[in-house]
Amino acid sequence: MKIRIRENQSEEIEGLSTEYPYICHHVNLADTRIPWHWHEEVEFVFVVSGAMTLTTSNQTCSFHKGEGFFINANVLCTMNAREEGQTAVIDSHLFHPVFLGGHFKSIFFTRYLEPVLQNRYLELLEFREAGPRQKKLLELLRRAALLQKHENTEFQTRNVFSDIWLLLLEELREAKPLLDSSKSVNRDRIQTMLAFIQQNYREKLSLEDIARSACVSKSECLRCFRTSIQRTPFEYLLDYRLECAERLLRTTDTPVLDIALKCGFSNGAYFGKMFKEARGIPPGLYRKVHQKKNGGIP
C-alpha cells in the first residue's frame, strides 16, 4: 500500500471510490511508513500479527495480535511497528460515513453516525477482548477482512460493518470520557499549526509565524508540539520537507537541487546532509533505488 498525503496532511485513501466508499488495506508496518495524517473516513484496525503503536495528538497506545481499535474521522495520528524491524501486520478498514449512512440527512446518518462523528472528545476506542461484546466486534473485523478475498461481497461487507457500528455504539455508552476539553483545544491548535506548516513549508518560517497561525504564544506553541506529537515545530518542519522531497525523488526526474529548493531547503548541500542523516543514503541514490524497485517513474 502506498500512503498518499495531501498538502493539508489529510490522507488520500488509495482504492476508495464514490461508487464504493470502503477499502481494506493489508499492511505490514515494518516496511510501510504511515506519517502524521488525518482523513474524513472512519477507520477500524485489526492486528493480524506482531505488535504496533498508535499515536494521536493526545495519547499513545500499543496493540498486539488479535487486538484492534476504532479511529474517529479527522483524528491526527501515526502508526508504527512497536519494535523497529519487527513484523506488525494489520488489516485497516476505512470507509466514508455514507457507506453506512447513505445521504447525510438519512435517519441512519443522523441517529447512528452523526453522534459519533461529531463527538470532539472521541479520538479512538480500543478493542482488547474485554468481554463478549469486544470479542464479537473483533470476530466481525476478521470476517470483514476475509470477505475481501472474494468477489461480489459488497452487501455482506456493509452488513458486517452495520453490526460492528451497533456494537461500537454499545461500547461508547459504557466507555468513560476519552478526551477532556483541554485536550480537545490542544488538538485543534496542533492541527491548525500543522496545516500552516504544510501550506507554507517552502518558505522560511519562524517560531513566531507558526505560533501566530493558531493565535498562541511561542512558548504555548512549543508546549503544544511537545505534548501532541513529541516533536518541536522545526523538527516537524524538517520531517515534512524531507517527506515532500522523498515523494518528488520517487515520482519525478526533477534535478535534486531543484527538489531541495522547492521543498524549502536553502541549498543542495544542506538538503543532502539532512536527507542522508534521516534516510541513511544520499538523495540521488535514494532515487535510483526506489525508481529501480518500482520500475521507473510512476
Rank of each mutant, 00 (worst) to 15 (best):
Q59S: 11
A145R: 15
P177T: 08
I71C: 11
R128E: 01
H150F: 11
M79Y: 09
Y22T: 02
Y20H: 09
Q148W: 06
Q291P: 05
F99D: 06
I210W: 01
R142K: 13
P115A: 05
D180N: 15
Q9S: 14
K218H: 06
N267L: 08
P283M: 05
T32I: 15
L178R: 13
V48H: 14
E19M: 06
E139D: 09
C263R: 03
L248N: 08
D253N: 14
R226L: 10
R189N: 08
R4A: 14
I90R: 04
E67I: 03
W38H: 15
L249F: 06
L137E: 00
A88N: 05
W36S: 04
K292H: 12
A195R: 05
D258I: 03
L29Q: 11
T53A: 15
L124R: 03
C24Q: 07
R6T: 06
P35H: 06
Q156W: 06
F265E: 06
R82Y: 10
I34H: 02
Q118R: 07
C221L: 04
Y121D: 06
N8G: 12
A269V: 08
T55D: 14
S182E: 06
A269G: 08
L122Y: 00
S213V: 02
L117K: 02
T153C: 14
T251D: 15
A195P: 01
R212P: 01
W165H: 02
F265H: 09
I23E: 12
G280F: 05
D91Q: 13
L285V: 02
P233E: 12
I197Y: 01
N80K: 15
E235H: 10
L140H: 00
S17F: 11
E139L: 00
D163A: 15
Y20Q: 05
D253S: 15
E41G: 08
W38F: 14
T60Y: 04
L167T: 00
Y20F: 13
I3T: 15
E114R: 08
Q156E: 15
T192S: 11
F95K: 07
D253L: 11
W36N: 04
T157N: 08
I23W: 03
N119P: 01
L137P: 00
C224L: 04
I281H: 08
E12M: 13
G101L: 04
A30G: 07
A145M: 10
R133I: 00
H37L: 10
R82E: 13
L100W: 04
H96D: 13
V75D: 07
E203L: 09
G272A: 10
K276P: 03
F108R: 09
K183F: 07
A144M: 05
I13L: 14
T56R: 10
E123K: 01
